[in-house]
Amino acid sequence: MIEKLAACCAPLETDAYLVGGSVRDWLLSAKPGQDIDIAVSGDPEAIAREIAGRFGGTVVPLSPAHGIVRVAVPADDGAEDGPWNIDVDGFTGTIEEDLARRDFSVNAMAVPLAGRPSSDSLIDMFGGRTDLATKTIRALGPTVFQDDPGRLMRAVRLAGQLKFRVEPGTSKLIAADAGLLASVSPERIREEFLTILSLDGAKGQIEVLDHFGLFEQVIPEL
């Protein structure tokens, strides 16, 4: 699917990159998952419609305020191991600037969707590949959780999903900013919490939430 996406984006006169969790999962398993994130320098909705037309998918606006559009591609449309969810996000400036605004090093890598996409062309300014090798969740900077407090839950969820550890500096940031979780929508907190509960070793992740002072924010009556 990645090579097909590259071929689809090639004539659109836009810079397009495989980004975020897609790159992370690709590097971990040598193949992309069924959820694919791409960042484009053009109009994300227009590009999403081109992708949908190419693969028989449906365009679903995910976050109009942030310009994120999803293309849902059914499994029965020649989509290999689908179904696929292809999230198209627009960026301004450079891809490096876009990556610098992300949350954790393992999510701040990109691969150009030009020619034949390969890990040899990996853009990795923050040591994400090294952190994958050492199974580490590392925040990109001191304001990561202040910029988006929902990332507090995401850090714990990612650590549980990937069987990674949260490195000490990031742990201190989470504990210091735990109170900011109160500003996150209940729906977003619930989604992350239910995902954590569904993981193998969920009890351990609940203990991690409690250690960071997040559990009392999730269920304040306890």
Results as ranks from 00 to 15, higher is better:
Pro11Asn: 10
Pro11Met: 08
Thr14Ser: 10
Ala16Pro: 08
Ala16Lys: 03
Val19Met: 13
Val19Tyr: 02
Gly21Met: 05
Trp26Arg: 06
Trp26Gln: 08
Gln34Thr: 15
Ile36Pro: 03
Asp43Ile: 07
Pro44Ile: 07
Gly53Val: 02
Gly57Asn: 08
Pro64Gln: 09
Arg70Lys: 15
Val73Arg: 06
Pro74Val: 11
Ala75Ile: 09
Gly82Phe: 05
Val88Trp: 06
Val88Ile: 14
Phe91Leu: 09
Asp98Gly: 12
Leu99Pro: 14
Leu99Asp: 06
Ala100Lys: 13
Arg101Thr: 15
Arg101Cys: 10
Asp103Lys: 06
Ser105His: 05
Ser105Tyr: 02
Ala108Phe: 03
Val111Ser: 13
Leu113Ser: 13
Ser119Leu: 01
Ser121Asn: 11
Ser121Lys: 10
Gly127Trp: 02
Asp131Ser: 13
Lys135Trp: 00
Ile137Val: 14
Phe145Ile: 10
Pro149Ala: 04
Leu152Cys: 07
Met153Gly: 08
Val156Gln: 12
Arg157Phe: 11
Leu158Lys: 09
Gly160Met: 01
Gln161Asn: 11
Gln161Gly: 11
Gly169Leu: 02
Ile174Trp: 03
Ile174Cys: 01
Leu181Ala: 12
Ala182Phe: 03
Pro186Ala: 02
Arg188Ala: 15
Ile189Leu: 06
Leu194Lys: 09
Gly204Lys: 14
Gly204Phe: 04
Gln205Asp: 12
Ile206Thr: 00
Glu207Ser: 14
Val208Phe: 01
Gly213Val: 05
Gln217Pro: 00
Glu221Leu: 11
